[in-house]
């Protein structure tokens, strides 16, 4: 059978096993990396969101028209503007919209 020997089968088997081991370890590593990254990111996310949404101490709150879009309360802001703001915050922080929680958006 040509150059086929018992050791050829061993090489083929070892190769397949090594590919599997390598990619299995990567497979196990990815969730760990994701957890670490998300754990490190969370305080940063919270701080950024808090900075974005916190009202300045000197400002006066307008009791004027208040609306609610989903779970976000809108104060003096229409839905279109609110959507733009949410998209900008998501883009600037690099955090997907699905992971950001907006409590309220208010015109200053």
């Amino acid at each position: 059978m040509g150059n086929l020997t018992a050791s050829s089968f061993l090489v083929a088997l070892s190769g397949m096993v090594i590919v599997f081991i390598m990619l299995s370890v990567l497979c196990a590593m990815i969730p760990i990396i994701s957890k670490v990254v998300l754990a490190v990111q969370k305080p940063v996310i919270n701080n950024r969101v808090a900075e974005t949404t916190r009202p300045k101490p000197s400002e006066t709150v307008n009791p004027a028209p208040t609306g609610v879009a989903g779970e976000v309360s809108l104060i003096d802001v229409d839905e279109k503007t609110a959507a733009c703001i949410m998209a900008i915050v998501s883009h600037e922080t690099g955090i997907p919209l699905s992971e950001l929680i907006f409590k309220s958006i208010k015109a200053i």
């Binding site: 050829s8 190769g15 397949m16 590919v19 599997f20 990619l23 299995s24 497979c27 990815i30 969730p31």
Partner: peptide, 19 residues
């Protein structure tokens, strides 16, 4: 991440063609 295992299994052709 389990997709990686499919990527590993699909290397079967490399080693069988080698033989």
């Amino acid at each position: 991440p389990s997709s990686l295992l499919l990527g590993a299994a699909a290397q079967l052709g490399i080693f069988t063609a080698f033989l």
